[in-house]
Design a protein around this nucleic acid. Sequence first.
DNA 1: CAGGATCCACTTGGATACTG
DNA 2: CAGTATCCAAGTGGATCCTG
Lengths: 121, 121
Amino acid sequence: MRERKKQYFHPIEVTLDVVCGKWKGVILCLLQEKDYRFGELKDQLYSVTPKVLTQQLRELEEDGLIKRTVYAQVPPKVVYSLTPYGKDLEGTLRMMEKWGQAHQEKVGVNFNEEVSEAELS
Amino acid sequence: MRERKKQYFHPIEVTLDVVCGKWKGVILCLLQEKDYRFGELKDQLYSVTPKVLTQQLRELEEDGLIKRTVYAQVPPKVVYSLTPYGKDLEGTLRMMEKWGQAHQEKVGVNFNEEVSEAELS
DNA sequence: CAGGATCCACTTGGATACTG
DNA sequence: CAGTATCCAAGTGGATCCTG
C-alpha cells in the first residue's frame, strides 16, 4: 500500500487521491476490458514516457488496484491486470466516463481520435 | 468555460480534469447538500487559504459546475451553488465517496474526524 | 521488452500581508 | 466578508540516455 501521510476530511478525497494521476484514469479504464503488457499500455497512451508510466503503475499497484505479473523469460514480459479490488471501481469509472462524454459534447472538448499518419509509421 | 489546451484520449480524462483539484471533490460534495457562502466553505475545509479556495471555485465556475451569486450589500455576501449541470455529477460523486469509504476501512486511512480543541478556540 | 537514472520545466498549492 | 497580490516550496510529469 502506498504510504499516505495526509489526513482526509472527506471520503471522496481518498478516491481522488488514488485516481488522480495524469494517466491513472485511462489505465484503469483500459484494464477493465483486458490485461495489458507494459508496452501495450505505452502504445495506448502513446505520448507517455516509460518512466512516468512506470510511476503511475507502481502507485496503482501500491494502492492495491492493479497486479503486476512478471513472466520469467527473455525478452521479459510483464502483464498488468486489475485486482478484484480494482474491479470494484468499474461502476464509478463508467459513470465518470459517461459524464466526461456528455461534458465533451456540451463544451466541445477536443479529442484525438486518430494519430497522424506520420506518427503511425 | 475554462480554456482547455490539452487533447484528450479518453472521456474519463475530461471528468478527472474538472474534478482533480486539491479541494474540488469536497467542495462539490458539500454543495450537493446546500448552498454555501465563501466563509462557510473556508470553515468546512478549514486548512485552505482564501487564495486557493478562490482558485478552486473560479475553475469550477469556469467549467460550468457551480454558480457564484453576489449580493450587493455591505458586508459582501457571496453564495456558491451547483448548476443543474453540476448536479449531474451527484451520482458519480456518491459512488466515489462510497468507494473511498470502503478503501478507508480496508486500508485504515486516517481521517480527521475532529479538530483539536486548540484549533477550535 | 520493460524498465532505471538524471536532470529539468512547469504547475499546484501554501504563507503571508493587504483591501474594497 | 470575500477576496487580491506576492513570493515561494514541493510535487509532478517530461526529455533523454542507459541497461539486465
